[in-house]
Design a protein around this nucleic acid. Sequence first.
DNA 1: CAGTGGTCTAGACCACTCT
DNA 2: GAGTGGTCTAGACCACTGG
Lengths: 226, 226
Amino acid sequence: MSRWLSRTPSVRTVIPRYYQAKARLIDLLGDLPGHSAFPPERTLSDVFGMSRTTIRKALEELVLEGRLIRGTGRQGTFVAPQGRIHRITLDALVQDAVTRERPEVRALVDLVNAESVLLHGDEPIGVRSTYLRAERFPRFAERYDGTPLRRFLTDTYDIRFGDPHPWCTTARATPRVATLLDVRPATPVLSVGWVGTDSTGAQVERSWVVLRGDRAQLALSAPARP
Amino acid sequence: MSRWLSRTPSVRTVIPRYYQAKARLIDLLGDLPGHSAFPPERTLSDVFGMSRTTIRKALEELVLEGRLIRGTGRQGTFVAPQGRIHRITLDALVQDAVTRERPEVRALVDLVNAESVLLHGDEPIGVRSTYLRAERFPRFAERYDGTPLRRFLTDTYDIRFGDPHPWCTTARATPRVATLLDVRPATPVLSVGWVGTDSTGAQVERSWVVLRGDRAQLALSAPARP
DNA sequence: CAGTGGTCTAGACCACTCT
DNA sequence: GAGTGGTCTAGACCACTGG
């Protein structure tokens, strides 16, 4: 086995400091009802005898898990109320059936891009972005009426889509996505992508969705097998 | 709308410093073939005129995207070779058909836990953990022979599984998972969970899989619709 | 032993929000 | 204005690896 692929043992028996902090914060969290104010970072730093950086790392994990909510300025940190994580089906993503802001359509050279922010209530939970071959969808920008994208394409351009074969990964929010989703840059997000083909097998659509992990989960389907 | 749910505008027109670093690192990366040595953090810190922390944040993102590989000690940082990201089907995860180390079986109070490290070659790409109701699967620990779990349960205990309705999220590696996957604690990972039921609808299995995002993607299925 | 990545600290500075 | 979270810096200390 070549050396750059060697599996380092990397024992690490010690529990990281930030993780000890997280455990204590979870204790603290357990007693508090939703919407309670949570102590500020600097206080926790003093009380726990750890640097603010370490505390922040622990807090960040709890935010990502949807257990804490943080606001800027005097808003501070709060205990998140229950039931803020929504399950979204893969089918709804592909079919563009999730509530969203009206897509922003941009014409590129050979492509057209439609980008929208997925909403639950008025909270942003994801971003959807689709690239279409301009040639196959003439005058898309003028004609598109904001209805669910796949249905629109089927109705207007007489497309018959094949299986999109989506895939799923973790990624980090780019600055642009972070702005749209109202998270900090580099926040871990769930990313789903797929390629749409027409009846001839030609690629006509390329899409991805980025979901906020603290507000959305992806519901999948895996039928039982004999 | 209550104030802790208010959508802060949070304009953030500026590009974060770490993201500028990342862009420059990608430039640097573009010219290098796989397995090339990459400059150490302290050098990049000097050259870019940024703190090591900021550089590290950029490097970490590239590692997570599978474009760089880092080793401890004198190993340093390398350009990752192509084709190290493997697509794994959801079905293979649920059916336990991914190559793996022999599961470690532990008896708990009312439950039995089977935990294994998923492998591609000899690289760890994920962790699979299943909890079974001890009552429904008597003497599981002694009887289990290491074959794919669902098949074993079907054959040995005459289970007929229903649809597991899996779901998918981002999470961060706990210290334990980090050790098994050979990543640092708090590394973002892809998490897939499901609940297995028998023909009566009773929950008999509860499983989750954690996948390293830099080595594995989850292949999904979403059939085209009329 | 020198140099690497991994962790943690202390503190500066900023933008923002509530009072 | 005071206090909050967000970003970035400089540097200490450690474990580990290769020459």
